[in-house]
Design a protein around this nucleic acid. Structure first.
Length: 892
RNA sequence: GGACGUUUAGCUCAGUUGGUUAGAGCGUUCGAUUCACAUUCGAAAGGUCGCAGGUUCGAAUCCUGCAACGUCCACCA
């Protein structure tokens, strides 16, 4: 074929991708409202894009998510659905604010909050966020993502802010959100509260100290945090513990150096393990979540114990800790208190242990447990009128279905995640919603007097909950903002216009599908389920696919600190978007991590180019074809290929329906490269008159590939004179599927060609040389080969192929299935090689035959195994025996 | 302390409800360049399916135990 401008030898993605994306965007097909008639009347299909954080740029993980979502939505669009992929970004409260603060500090603003003040700092963050947002949005376009830009959402925009406020107020009115003095996770470094989900547990060595408060105190206790003991108010023992039963209810006064002598009450609590340590637990309600629950239990029992905070928000000991300790860090205080115990002879032992401590996922410091007044979401309280709690809703949504309705059940993939999720639900504590941050949704609560961040139980002033301040003077809004996951949690409906009951809301939720990385399954998936089921009494999505992490070739996480980051945009520039997309989805299995490296992209670039050249060949050789001509299989090869195509069509469809992208893509690749390019197109050069079939095949293949590699397929589609592959009809049941089913017959021909090629290579026949061949076959095989003599001759480079009774003496021979084939090597046959080959095959075949025979003689097998299996084995045995006989004939 | 995942060719991974000679891509070796594509084509080598037991006529696949790696949960005071 002539080189020409339209069809260069190699596909150049950089020349076409931008224009094609622009064309798609202008076509309106990304927006379900402006899709062709067929789609607008179709079933709805919706995906909400997990909003990337506006903290920087798109990374490979985003690129992978964009790819799988885009494959899903393109597939559904081609099938005629009213398909929506709704894009958006996340303001990412703490991530963004801390990032900007760090940048400012680098620029010399040492204390950004103090120096700039709330308004100015928020303005700086907004600037940064807007910048980052526009970068990210343009990168989503580069990935070819077919999302509806007219519905673009941002977690901190006007509409989403309205939704968040409304949600907060509604939950408050339902009694689910409350203000409470409770123990929080406090990051000293970040000066901020963390939810349980933002805690990362790490193991570290620690010392377990066993001691008594005083010489005459009857119970010995153990702790890894001696300094907190300055705030102890009780000792808890198991109610059945004979050793301590007699003390329960008594109160002891001990002086261990705190500001005031401690009043220690002995209480009984089921959760204390008799066999752990001394079987008694010093209770510090102010500095341990567990102890705090005991404090609450005692309060409920009307047998209260005290609560004494001895650590402040600055991580230093408070005045309550006593004059010897005030102002010290916890480490200093610990050392001091331990030596105090030692000098008094109160320390019984010191033991090295490994301890699990919680750290802040953002600031990476060990979090302190401190009591504070914060806003909380109650997991256990009954929702008015629903007869169940938020926890119940979260459980129902993945088990029985919401309200027991199977229609309202979320299917999570891979399934094992469900178990982990339920585990987590069972252990869920109330969610601390308020954050000491400025970047985010400000808590919609107003006070007459502003409470300071403090760990004293402050007296409440007049309070009003609502988005707008009430009438009158002196109202000040709560200074805190909401946990960023509060707004992300409402993503599946806030994006559709809620709290207004819009057409979009009615139509596109519950959404069809959600995908996310497994690190988000609690932080985000759980919250979406919680909020959606609460607000709309519906599930947020029908299917949820949890994918693994992308790692580098050594299995390491991509991260800035290890410097192994790969910029997806650079990869697109170098190899093309289609190649990158394939590399992100092929060879992965759901829920497992996968590795990414450039060799993979290269291989997939080659695949894209292969498709380009297949098209180039087919288009050039079918230029004058009447596109209306009927697709009809005339030869064995035609029947075979059309049967394969029909099979691929239905299997790829099935796989995409069940979100098995990797498998679908691999199947298509194998078909395209091997069956179509290497075999059928080669045959098409020999057997003429395939124009209509070739066109049909190419168009079908382009359609099947389009969701995976949208750019090159759309481009070729255009070069073929067609319009808008993006909305072309997905291949489905057609005449081919029922007409052509048989693929096995062609395998005889294919195997014969391969075996002759191997024989030539073994015998050292020059590759270009045409030689004579003789083929001894019988029955159906004989006829099949006769019909395909020309094909075989060309593909195996034969000058002549005769069907013979026996292969002439002196020719090199091999066995292909049950066919004996010989080639005339003009007396130069390498007997040694031939014999070695035959012997090797015989050696493999004999034990195989023996084992088959043994199986077939085994009555247990023949009576128990299904008839199909037994028959299959008999056939195999017959074939193997025939082959063995032929081999033995040739090797003697 | 519980739970989960992974372990298959040198590398990356497939392997559907157990069915009998375990597959692909990359890499390796040998060979090929006029006529779609060297971003290509042909051929080959390469695996005791982590280990040990068990169930079964039959196990990479099911069960039990163990090991290595990874992950999650828990009020390990």
């Amino acid at each position: 074929m002539q080189e020409n401008e339209k069809w260069p030898k190699a596909y150049d993605s950089s020349q076409v991708e931008k224009d094609i994306y622009k064309h798609w965007e202008e076509s309106g097909y990304f927006n379900p409202d402006t899709l062709p008639e067929r789609n607008r009347g179709g079933e709805m299909y919706s995906i909400m894009m997990p909003p990337p954080n506006v903290t920087g740029v798109l990374h490979l993980g985003h690129a992978m998510e964009d790819t799988i979502m885009d494959i899903a939505v393109r597939f559904q669009r081609m099938r005629g659905k009213k398909a929506l992929l709704l894009p958006g970004t996340d303001h990412a409260a703490i991530a963004t604010q801390s990032k900007v603060e760090k940048l400012l500090m680098k620029e010399g603003v040492k204390y950004p909050r103090e120096e700039l003040g709330r308004e100015k700092l928020v303005e700086k963050i907004r600037e940064f966020a807007e910048n980052s947002k526009s970068t990210i949005l343009s990168q989503i376009r580069v990935m070819g993502t077919s999302c509806d830009w007219s519905r673009l959402a941002y977690t901190l925009d006007e509409a989403r802010n309205r939704a968040v406020n409304e949600l907060f107020v509604r939950m408050y009115k339902d009694g689910l959100i409350y203000r409470g003095y409770r123990v929080v996770n406090w990051s000293i470094k970040g000066q901020i509260t963390c939810s349980d989900d933002e805690i990362v547990y790490i193991e570290r060595p620690a010392k377990l100290y066993t001691f008594k408060y005083s010489k005459d105190f009857p119970i010995t206790i153990a702790t890894t945090r001696p300094e907190t003991k300055l705030g102890d108010t009780a000792v808890a023992v198991h109610p059945d513990d004979e050793r301590y039963k007699k003390y329960v209810g008594q109160t002891f006064t001990v002086d261990i150096g705190a500001a005031k002598p401690l009043l220690i009450k002995i209480i009984a609590d089921e959760s204390v393990e008799k066999d752990f340590g001394t079987g008694a637990l010093g209770v510090t309600p102010a500095h341990s979540a567990v102890d705090f629950t005991m404090y609450e239990k005692q309060k409920a029992k009307n047998d209260p114990i005290g609560i004494v905070p001895v650590i402040g928000t600055d991580g230093r000991m408070t005045e309550a800790a006593g004059k010897d300790y005030v102002g010290l860090t916890v480490e200093e205080a610990r050392e001091k208190f331990v030596s105090w115990l030692k000098t008094r002879g109160l320390l019984e032992s010191e033991e090295d242990i490994t301890q699990n401590v919680g750290t802040s996922d953002r600031y990476e410091d060990v979090v302190e447990s401190l009591p504070m007044t914060q806003w909380w979401l109650d997991m256990n309280r009954e929702i008015p009128g629903r007869g169940k709690s938020l926890r119940d809703l979260m459980r129902e949504a993945v088990t029985t279905g919401l309200d027991g309705s199977a229609e309202k059940k979320i299917r999570i993939m891979p399934e094992r995640i469900v178990k982990e999720y339920l585990d987590r639900i069972d252990n869920l504590r109330d969610w601390c919603l308020s954050r000491q941050l400025w970047w985010g949704h400000r808590i919609p609560v107003w006070y007459k007097k502003q409470p300071a961040v403090t760990n004293d139980e402050s007296s409440e002033k007049e309070m009003y909950v609502g988005a707008v301040a009430p009438e009158g003077e002196g109202w000040e809004q709560d200074p805190d903002t909401l946990d960023t996951w509060f707004s992300s949690g409402s993503w599946t409906f806030s994006t559709l216009g809620w709290p207004e009951i819009t057409e979009d809301l009615k139509r596109y939720q519950p959404t069809s599908w959600m995908q996310m990385g497994y690190e988000l399954r609690y932080l985000w998936m759980m919250r979406m389920i919680l909020m959606h089921t609460y607000v709309l009494e519906e599930i947020p999505f029908k299917d949820c696919y949890i994918h693994g992490l992308l790692k580098d070739e050594h299995g390491k996480k991509f991260s800035k600190s290890s410097g192994n980051g790969i910029d997806p945009i650079e990869v697109v520039e170098r190899y093309g978007c289609d190649a990158l997309r394939l590399s992100l989805i092929l060879g992965i299995s759901p829920g497992n991590d996968s590795k990414f490296y450039l060799e993979k992209v290269e291989a997939n670039r080659n695949l894209v180019n292969k498709i380009w050249n297949i098209s180039r060949f087919i288009v050039s050789s079918t230029q004058d074809t009447d596109s209306a001509s009927r697709v009809e299989a005339k030869t064995l090869a035609d029947k075979w290929l059309l049967a394969r195509l029909a099979e691929i069509e239905s299997r790829v469809t099935e796989m995409l329906e069940s979100y098995q992208f990797s498998q679908a893509g691999e199947m298509l690749r194998d078909f395209t490269w091997s069956d179509l390019a290497d075999w059928y197109l080669e045959i098409a050069k020999i057997e003429k008159g395939k124009e209509a079939i070739l066109r049909h095949i190419l168009e079908t293949v382009l359609k099947l590939w389009h969701p995976f590699m949208p750019f090159v397929t759309e481009y070729i589609w255009g070069l073929m004179g067609n319009k808008d592959l993006i909305v072309a009809e997905w291949p489905k049941d057609d005449v081919l599927r029922t007409e052509y089913r048989e693929t096995a017959e062609f395998e005889t021909v294919r195997n014969l060609v391969t075996d002759i090629r191997r024989l030539r290579a073994e015998q050292g026949v020059e590759p270009a040389k045409f030689i004579e061949a003789g083929v001894a076959a019988s029955g159906d095989d004989q006829q099949r080969l006769e019909e395909n003599v020309e094909v075989i001759k060309h593909l195996a480079r034969l000058s002549e192929m005769k069907l013979v009774a026996t292969v002439p003496e002196g020719w090199a021979t091999t066995i292909s299935g049950v066919i004996t084939v010989g080639i005339n090597v003009a007396g130069t046959v390498d007997k040694e090689k031939e014999k070695a080959k035959a012997e090797k095959e015989i050696a493999e075949l004999k034990p195989y035959i023996t084992s088959l025979q043994a199986k077939l003689q085994n009555e247990e097998f023949t009576s128990k195994a299904p008839e199909k299996v037994v028959q299959g084995m008999k056939d195999k045995l017959a074939e193997a025996e025939a082959k063995l006989k032929a081999l033995e004939d040739t090797s003697t």
